[in-house]
């Protein structure tokens, strides 16, 4: 089993959802990122999503957009992001690492170049926000050939007719975008998340993770009751935004609270 499947299986064995945490690579600068990533792991994150900054992050709300601009403003280059990933892989051989970002920085040197770099850096999966199944002729096949999971997104507007196209070629896990919107703004009603997750789980054997608008340990625990994974991004990115290169301990404290809520919820369910 690969790192992602192993980790989802381990969380399942503990009766809880996997905690997936997002930060933007190079925010506030390249030198600070390793300590922040280590803080995510130390706080109890199961899977790390590393944002690849882009000048025009159209699917992101203000928190992650600002993180993108802070990172690029401090001079982060693509080669730095792969170096951050490779170093992380050396320090944390078992923690899955997902790269998330936009098509242009990923494809500018060609899909095969990108997939090879991902593989060499020990990246387990890639989420490319602005490549829907209809445009997946390049990046999906290149990633699969390099044994990197192309992780697909399902949204509230992905109806039953579209879902098979989204699932075809999806691997690693399925990312359910809980709100029709951008990251970190609105939050979805718990009832709508439950209906959506049930619908997705009926259609795929892949683990289903839920993200967009998840900001508190309470929300994470509630979603953790039904989903295989919970993604928290903007709330962590906000902490990095406030504390800059001194953010690591604050990030660790918050992630520990998220993880505590998921673990507690699992114990309650078991009891």
């Amino acid at each position: 089993m690969d790192r992602l499947s192993t980790r989802f299986a381990a969380c399942k064995a503990q009766g809880r959802a996997a905690l997936i945490t997002f930060v933007t690579a190079g925010d506030p600068d390249v030198a600070s990122t390793p300590a922040i990533l280590d803080a995510l792991v130390a706080g109890g994150a199961d899977i790390i999503e590393l944002g690849m900054p882009f000048t025009d992050p159209m699917a992101d709300g203000p928190a992650i957009e600002l993180a993108n601009l802070r990172s690029l403003g401090s001079g982060t280059k693509t080669k730095d992001i792969f170096a951050i990933a490779a170093d992380f892989r050396a320090r944390h051989p078992d923690t899955p690492l997902i790269l998330m970002g936009y098509a242009n920085p990923m494809l500018v040197r060609g899909a095969n170049w990108f997939a090879d770099q991902c593989k060499a850096a020990g990246i387990d999966g890639v989420i490319c926000v602005d490549v829907p199944p209809e445009e997946d002729a390049e990046i999906g096949p290149a990633l699969r050939a390099a044994s990197v999971h192309p992780v697909r997104l399902a949204t509230p507007t992905t109806d039953a007719q579209r879902l098979p196209a989204v699932l075809e070629g999806a691997s690693g896990f399925l990312y359910h975008v809980a709100v029709a919107g951008v990251t970190g703004k609105q939050q979805a009603a718990q009832s709508s998340i439950e209906i959506a997750v049930a619908r997705l789980k009926a259609a795929t054997d892949l683990p289903v993770a839920v993200g967009f608008g998840v900001r508190t340990p309470e929300q994470a625990a509630a979603i953790g009751r039904v989903a295989d994974g919970v993604v928290v991004g903007s709330a962590i990115v906000d902490i990095v935004g406030s504390h800059g290169d001194a953010a690591a301990p604050f990030v660790q404290e918050f992630v520990a609270a998220l993880r505590g809520a998921l673990t507690h919820q699992a114990q309650e369910t078991a009891a």
Partner: peptide, 20 residues
Amino acid sequence: ANGHFGAFGGRYVAETLMPL
């Protein structure tokens, strides 16, 4: 049919917008 002008064009949008 997929909105391509030679190698250009297409529909590079987030999944949320695709159905629309």
